[in-house]
Amino acid sequence: MVIPTTLDPTMASPGKHFMSCFVQYCPPKVEGRDWTDADRDAFAETVIKQIAEYSPGFRDRIVHMEVRTPREIENEVGLTEGNIFQGELTFDQLLFNRPVPGYAQYRSPIDGLYICGSSTHPGGGVMGAPGRNAAAEILRDLKRPNELMSKAHDVI
């Protein structure tokens, strides 16, 4: 749970705040069936109730609220099953197995079509590494020099 307006008040009108929560665990299906609006609202209610236990009066301060279950995440930004990492970060889907064995080098089975999302090595999170690595591979295929690409870190 983060309140970004404590760092950047311009995100909300004066005196107001914006708060964002990631909530574990929220499966893509509810007991085997698709999410409904009622499920979503009930889930939101559960979350608000828990936050209010830690922050009395929280509920009364809510001006507007948006809830995205995996269903909404899939519909709005196309992340299948609402998985924010585009695939579990377990060993069978990491490194040379990401996203699937045999296609872990940012190349797809189709020539000229590359993949560089979170589903590729090294995975999800806002870091840009899959895209950077994919660009290096593309340059390699194009036989273009990639020495102009800067190192991620000169010193660690």
Partner: peptide, 14 residues
Amino acid sequence: GRDFLRMMLMNVAD
């Protein structure tokens, strides 16, 4: 070989 490296640390259910 690929399958071994993929499956080695998987869970039995999957």
